[in-house]
Nucleic acid binder design. Structure first.
Length: 1106
RNA sequence: GGGUGAUUAGCUCAGUUGGCUAGAGCGACUCGUUUACACCGAGUAGGUCACAGGUUCGAGUCCUGUAUCACCCACCA
């Protein structure tokens, strides 16, 4: 039913300008709550948690890709009738955000973090966060991301903080969080510990220094002998506590048991035997064996291997550095009473690592103790944030025991069997026990974790098989404060415990102390009616910690101790009790005496100043965004989520930890599907990053090409094997011209090469204040917008779709009513059949996360099949009364195309949808009856009846295409003017001709010819051009140059002879005909027959020409 | 040191379990502005599928080795 409206095309402008259309569409979606989901809706649940972008900076193209893919999945799920939700949010990104704010504050105010109170500085970071969270949210909205914005989360907002406290508490209670004094990866610049995966290895040029140590006896009397140790880090020798030799090292093993007198530090240290030491071998393949001296200096406080050796041999651990990695005797130096040592050390104290290294080497040289220096290139860990060299540093940190089978083991077992590699790891023989206080049976899956592409399963597996405990504390201000308070019992508690329990060792002492403190705390807490909200932990060295579950509990205890300090309890006489009653009104008055006991015997320690590693809160994301620890309907419905879509760099940092936590706390996987997509690099294969200045703001691309173009291009570039290269250009804001800056990494700086174009002899780059040569990244904030020609693909496609729709709508609107009965033409049947296949292809590719082929398939369908063939076929007659069915088909094909494309190009399809609705509201053909819908965003996904697949049409239409192709080729070759209508006759076998004959008007339409004869006995008209091909032989009735004709025919002849030779060779091979599948052999025979027939004809025509 | 991926047209990339006479987009060249579209249409050229062996009737595809590039992991003597 065509119901022409007033002038529907008035609001579909002739050319497509995304910037003119997208904002209004976005407005309509947001106002109409198009993205919202509720937990009480029916429909299969579908959920995705956004990988929360860091609030450090605006999003770049990598995010655009990541979020485009998620939006495609979400919109597809929503259209497919699922109860789909996409949960948005951002990550506080502890160290990263704090670092950028520190830099800004230093640049703008000249102040350092330590010039502020903690709360004041956190306020500054909070302001930064607010700014960038708003920017990021706006970027996502403009990209068309259909997140449920009412559910936006932040990893540090109150609901997420609650989840973090709860998770920490439970892990603490279950004994999985412990305090340990270990070597950590210390970043001396940001002065915090880093996790193993926050350390980047870089090759650096260094030296091997060979230092001579005098041998002595146990009392320090030198024997005159010397041993030579080899080291890359001479400055750590101040902390040496042994020299090690391999016991199997024949010539050197005799030194074991002797001592050396450590120079400068004036310390007598033993020579010990340890297998770890590499035996020197100048001919070895191992560079270490070539460089080794056989004597290894052991510095347990400054080298992880030495630490291990130290543990084995019970060596002292002497830290010789301050937290800023300068040489210091105030952080664990044990020999301050040795005046000779102090005197020797004095020149080095306060020097940086680098300066101390030179100074120590100089000292050894001056004292004739430097044997040799050899250059050596080796890998050194650097902070991924400050890029400073990591210092192995001995300090107290909190650890999560991820090595526990309940965590790493469970994660390993979750991996789908089809993706597991053979492994003897213990975890595969174990079974995860149910957690003690898990309240309800989990209903979700615990196994079947599947990676796409599958190779990333190996990364996951290897990581968990070699996992080490996770250092979760960070010495930062921006993050979740660790919910642990340090407790200090007074002496009377220790005495009481010791007297009552008579502990035999430290462990027993610690256990007894823990019980005692638990009773004390319990009394206090129960007076506040807050039982079981705390856990007391006592380490082996009798340090006491109190972990609190809730803010309320923390508040209660904090209140008590604030009062405590006011009363200055210490000043009271022994046994004298202050009167708390007035200031501490306990809910349970009966227990208040016991509560006072608690206050009296504990000196309130402060809350741990450290914060948690950012990834701790990220690990809870699929739970915390859905309301955990509350048992919300959302959590029940949408956890496990449907898929995690991310880049490979955070498989270990994030994916692993989400899997472990979700399994641990909820007993089920956070998701079963993990889709790992490509990374976007710049045109030179370098990773895009803001610091390199090659990061592209998606808003620039939206500005130049439109959001749909960006999305479509990104999706179609994403294949499963390769990273995506995106050459970055810049647009001159004044002239609009594009030029290509070149970015070359050079020691953290960026080189801007001369631009490709120069105007008026003046470099365009320098007109932006960018000189050629080294510039600082911060100088490189482009005034010009970035762009990339890559996005023209999507832009052209959007325009094509726009124009095809305009054509259709103008004809549908102006057409007469469909009173005359009509039937579907060959072209109609063919395109409807292809439409069904397009639906199936989209379904299949989306299910497989094959975005490249989803986008590519629709591009092919719309551009080639619909536009180039179908529309061109129906064009001349589409308005006629007889073409009513064709119009129905055209509208339907357009309808389906818009639906299929909507997930990847939501804006333009939505815009065209309203045009289609206005012009042709009731569409659909038998077998494909799309449900009407006002807005495409809420429209159902098309479902096709396979009965609409028309094999006959799919066979005949290509024959028409063949004939058309033949004619066009000759027309172009013969330089026939396109407007000129030329007669054409087609020589074809009868059976074939019968099938093609009803559709000859198509050939006429598509080639601008007039078909004068078709049949088995068509003779060549005098002087006509010959057209040959698999479809038959035709004669184009034009006068043609004989030489050109012969040349063309000879060329074709050569092609045919070549293929005939190949085919004959195959067929004459008996092994082929006997072993290859019969249908292939038959196909070869058919091909041979066709080629032979055409060759014969070509040869005959050639003879005739001569 | 270990691992993963890549190497296909001038450029950027596809190529599913071996059947290929190797494809697409961009760029190049030739024609063309007939009321959807020059952000277009029609046509053409352009490839020893990195290299060397092997398996097979048949290899871009599987196996082995080599080279180059990228990324990840690894305790800095």
């Amino acid at each position: 039913m065509t119901t022409p409206t007033e002038n529907p095309l008035a609001d579909l402008p002739p050319s497509y300008r995304p910037a003119n259309e997208e904002p209004a569409i976005l407005e309509r979606w947001l106002a109409g709550d198009a993205y919202q989901a509720t937990a009480d809706d029916t429909g299969d649940p579908y959920s995705i948690c956004i990988p929360p972008p860091n609030v450090t900076a605006p999003l770049h193209l990598g995010h655009a890709l990541n979020n485009t893919l998620q939006d495609i999945l979400t919109r597809h799920a929503r259209m497919s009738g699922k109860n789909a939700v996409w949960l948005p949010g951002t990550d506080h990104a502890g160290i990263a955000t704090q670092t950028v704010v520190e830099k800004r504050v230093l640049a703008e105010e000249g102040k350092r973090r330590t010039d502020f109170e903690r709360d004041a500085f956190v306020g500054k970071i909070q302001a930064w966060k607010d700014e960038y969270e708003a920017t990021i949210t706006d970027q996502l909205k403009q990209m068309g991301c259909s997140c449920d914005w009412d559910r936006q989360a932040f990893t540090m907002d109150e609901p997420r903080a609650k989840a973090v406290r709860e998770a920490f508490f439970q892990l603490f209670k279950d004994g999985l969080i412990y305090r340990g004094k270990r070597l950590v990866n210390w970043d001396p610049v940001t002065q915090t510990a880093l996790a193993d995966d926050e350390v980047e290895m870089k090759d650096v040029d260094g030296n091997f220094y060979y230092l001579k140590y005098p041998v002595c006896d146990a009392d320090g009397n030198t024997t005159g002998d010397q041993v030579t140790v080899a080291t890359t880090r001479p400055e750590t020798m101040l902390g040496d506590t042994a020299v090690a030799v391999n016991p199997k090292d024949e010539p050197r093993a005799k030194y074991i048991g002797q001592f050396v007198k450590l120079p400068i530090a004036d310390r007598v240290i033993p020579i010990i035997g340890d297998d770890y030491v590499v035996i020197p071998d100048p001919d070895s393949d191992d560079s270490k064996a070539r460089m080794a001296s056989g004597f290894l200096k052991v510095t347990p406080a400054h080298d992880p291997n030495d630490y291990e050796i130290g543990q084995r041999h019970d060596l002292d651990i002497i830290n010789v550095m301050a937290p800023d990695a300068s040489i210091s005797i105030d952080h664990g130096w044990p020999e301050k009473e040795n005046p000779r040592a102090i005197e020797g050390l004095q020149p080095f104290v306060g020097q940086t690592r680098e300066a101390a290294r030179k100074a120590i080497v100089r000292w050894f040289k001056e004292n004739d103790l430097l044997a040799e220096v050899k250059p050596y290139r080796h890998a050194v860990g650097h902070s991924y944030r400050s890029h400073a060299a990591i210092e192995p540093y001995y300090s107290d940190q909190w650890y999560l025991k991820v090595t526990d089978d309940r965590l790493a083991g469970a994660a390993l077992r979750a991996l789908d069997e089809s993706q597991r590699e053979a492994s003897s790891h213990d975890a595969f023989n174990a079974k995860t026990p149910r957690r003690q206080d898990a309240k309800e049976e989990p209903t979700g899956p615990t196994t079947g974790l599947t990676f796409t592409p599958p190779r990333y399963a190996k990364t996951f597996q290897t990581w968990h098989e070699n996992i080490r405990d996770w250092c979760i504390s960070r010495q930062l201000w921006w993050g979740h404060r660790i919910p642990v308070w340090h407790l200090q019992p007074d002496d009377s508690v220790y005495t009481r415990v010791f007297d009552r329990r008579q502990p035999k060792n430290n462990q027993e002492y610690a256990d007894a102390l823990k019980e005692e403190l638990t009773v004390l705390c319990n009394n206090y807490m129960s007076a506040w009616r807050a039982e079981s909200d705390f856990i007391v932990s006592v380490t082996e060295d009798l340090k006491c910690y109190l972990c609190l579950r809730s803010e309320a509990a923390a508040g209660a205890i904090d209140l008590a101790f604030r009062q405590l300090s006011e009363f200055e309890l210490k000043k009271l006489a022994p046994g004298e009790k202050p009167n708390f009653a007035d200031v501490l009104p306990f809910p349970d008055e009966a227990k208040k005496d016991a509560a006072f006991d608690f206050i009296e015997h504990l000196i309130w320690g402060k809350q741990d100043p450290d914060v948690l590693d950012t990834w701790f809160s990220s690990a809870l994301w699929p739970m915390s965004t859905l309301g955990w620890p509350e048992r919300t309907p959302e959590l029940d419905l949408w956890n496990p989520t449907s898929v995690l879509c991310t880049a490979r760099e955070i498989i270990t940092l994030w994916v692993s930890r989400m899997v472990m936590f979700n399994l641990y706390f909820l007993g089920q996987l956070p998701f079963r599907d993990v889709f790992i997509h490509a990374m976007i690099q710049d045109g030179h294969g370098q990773k895009m990053s803001k610091s390199l200045g090659n990061g592209v703001d998606p808003m620039d691309i939206i500005h130049s090409h439109g959001a749909d173009a960006m999305r479509f291009t990104l999706a179609s570039m994403t294949t499963q094997t390769q990273d995506v290269r995106m050459p970055v250009d810049m647009v001159d804001p004044h002239s609009g011209e594009t030029f290509t800056p070149k970015f070359i990494t050079a020691s953290g700086g960026v080189k801007v090469a001369a631009p490709t174009q120069e105007r008026n002899g003046k470099s365009m780059v320098s007109s932006y204040g960018l000189a050629s040569g080294e510039v600082k990244p911060s100088d490189n904030q482009p005034l010009a917008r970035n762009t990339s020609e890559k996005f023209e693909l999507g832009q052209r496609f959007a325009t094509k779709l726009w124009n095809a729709t305009r054509f259709a709508l103008s004809n549908l609107a102006e057409a007469e009513s469909d009173a005359v009965t009509s039937s579907l033409s060959l072209a109609d049947k063919w395109i409807l059949s292809k439409t069904v296949r397009a639906i199936e292809h989209a379904d299949k590719t989306l299910k497989a996360y094959d975005f490249h082929n989803y986008a590519g398939g629709l591009y092919e369908f719309v551009w080639n099949e619909v536009c180039d063939w179908y529309i061109e076929s129906v064009k001349p007659d589409i308005k006629s009364p007889e073409a009513a069915k064709s119009r129905q088909a055209l509208a339907t094909v357009l309808d389906v195309s818009l639906r299929l494309l909507h997930p990847v190009m939501p804006f333009v399809t939505e815009r065209l949808w309203s045009g289609l609705n206005a012009v042709f509201p009731q569409r659909g053909v038998l077998g494909l009856d799309p449900v009407e819908c006002d807005e495409l965003v809420g429209a159902p996904w098309p479902v096709a009846d396979r009965a609409l697949i028309d094999l006959e049409a799919e066979e005949v239409f290509p024959k028409v295409q063949h004939v058309v192709g033949m004619i066009r080729e000759v027309r172009a070759g013969a330089k026939v003017p396109p407007r000129e209508v030329v007669d054409f006759s087609l020589h074809m076998e009868d059976a074939e001709a019968d099938r093609v004959r009803p559709n000859l008007h198509l050939v006429e339409t598509l080639t601008n010819t007039k078909m004068v004869a078709v049949g088995p006995d068509i003779a060549k008209p005098e002087g006509a051009a010959v057209v040959t091909g698999p479809a038959g032989i035709g004669y184009l009735h034009v006068q043609i140059d004989t030489a050109e004709e012969a040349e063309r025919l000879n060329k074709r002849k050569a092609e045919l002879e070549k293929s005939l030779k190949t085919l004959d060779g195959r067929l004459s091979n008996e092994k082929y005909t006997s072993k290859a599948p019969s249908h292939l052999v038959q196909q070869t025979r058919d091909q041979r027959a066709a080629a032979a027939a055409e060759l014969e004809e070509v040869a005959r025509q050639l003879t005739a020409l001569e």
